[in-house]
């Protein structure tokens, strides 16, 4: 049985971080025993806690899923490769069809004819554009009334 004097000395060293593992075991032993001096009672729960914590166990079994994970990773990699490869193949297949479609758009043999047709097409585009611009004209009305309200 440790003397109270000795425990007091050990405690002093303990708080300075100067006790050895063996001395700390003596303290744990003392404070988890039945007879703790009343004036040292306050330290009981501290050392009691440390002692109790040593008993805490991992309840769950450890599962080393590494093999499963690698298989899973391979599967993911394989499916990505398949997707990319499939996509590439698909676009490659598509390309010749596009070429055919373009050749069927129609060509003109004489440059004059081609020029006329181009002009017609451009005129149509600009005509449609102008219809759009006409409706923008209304916006000027807003601009005018705004200027009347907020005189510049």
């Amino acid at each position: 049985m440790e003397s109270v004097k000795n425990i007091e000395l050990l405690l002093e060293k303990y708080f300075e971080g100067e006790t050895s593992i063996a001395e700390e075991k003596v303290l744990k032993q003392y404070f988890t025993s039945e007879t703790v001096a009343p004036h040292l009672e306050q330290y009981r729960s501290l050392f009691g806690y440390f002692k109790a914590e040593q008993e805490e166990k991992l309840e769950q079994p450890i599962v080393l899923t590494s093999q499963k994970t690698t298989l899973y990773r391979w599967l993911v990699a394989a499916s990505i490769a398949l997707l990319l490869g499939g996509g590439f193949w698909f676009t490659q297949q598509e390309a010749p069809q596009n070429a055919v479609a373009q050749s069927e758009l129609g060509t003109y043999d004489s440059p004059e004819e081609a020029f006329e047709e181009t002009q017609k097409a451009l005129a149509m585009v600009s005509g449609h554009l102008n219809t759009g611009i006409e409706s923008i004209g209304y916006l000027n009305e807003y601009e005018n009334s705004k200027n009347q309200v907020f005189k510049q």
Binding site: L58, E59, Q60, I62, V63, L64, T65, S66, T69
Partner: peptide, 14 residues
């Protein structure tokens, strides 16, 4: 903490 232990052990196993 259980998850962390699991994770660390798998890393260690690797």
């Amino acid at each position: 903490a259980e998850d962390a232990t699991q994770e660390v052990m798998v890393k260690l196993w690797a």
